[in-house]
Amino acid sequence: MKFSETYIGGILFASASLLTGLRTTLKEFFTPKVTEQYPENRATLKISERHRAMLYMPLDENGNNKCIACGLCQSACPNSTIIVKTKNIVDEESGKSKKVLDEYIYDLGSCMFCQLCVNACPKDAIAFNNQFENAVFDRKKLVIRLNK
């Protein structure tokens, strides 16, 4: 019979294991804490650039988006989060009818951030940003129009 299996030995071994645990937590008691204080640290908070929090349309220097209303993002989307509404306008110079973007509607509340739309876009007209502060009181506020 090992000493640790005897009555006294058992007590001693058990106490030793408990004391080791106590020592460990005591050490942590005095180490600096790791908590990051959001929202106090909002100004300094760094989030990875690749983080996906919300879809947006980057604008070029003239303030226009690059969307050509091809609808590839809409068809790539697994759960119809994106709806691209188009309209036909007549080009004044050539007189031809052209399909352009009317409304780019994005439902933040059902997006699964799979990046398929961004991958599908031929013009890099959409991208994800890391602005994560999106909680709202009304479900309808999550359906947003990305273009102006």
């Binding site: 509340g109 999106n134 909680a135």
Partner: peptide, 22 residues
């Protein structure tokens, strides 16, 4: 009845905290 909606899949913890503040 829902009071606050926090979008994300999943939302990062800060986003949940933001929702809690809302």
């Amino acid at each position: 009845p829902v009071d606050v909606y926090i979008p994300g899949c999943p939302p990062r913890p800060e986003a949940i905290l933001y929702g809690m503040m809302q």
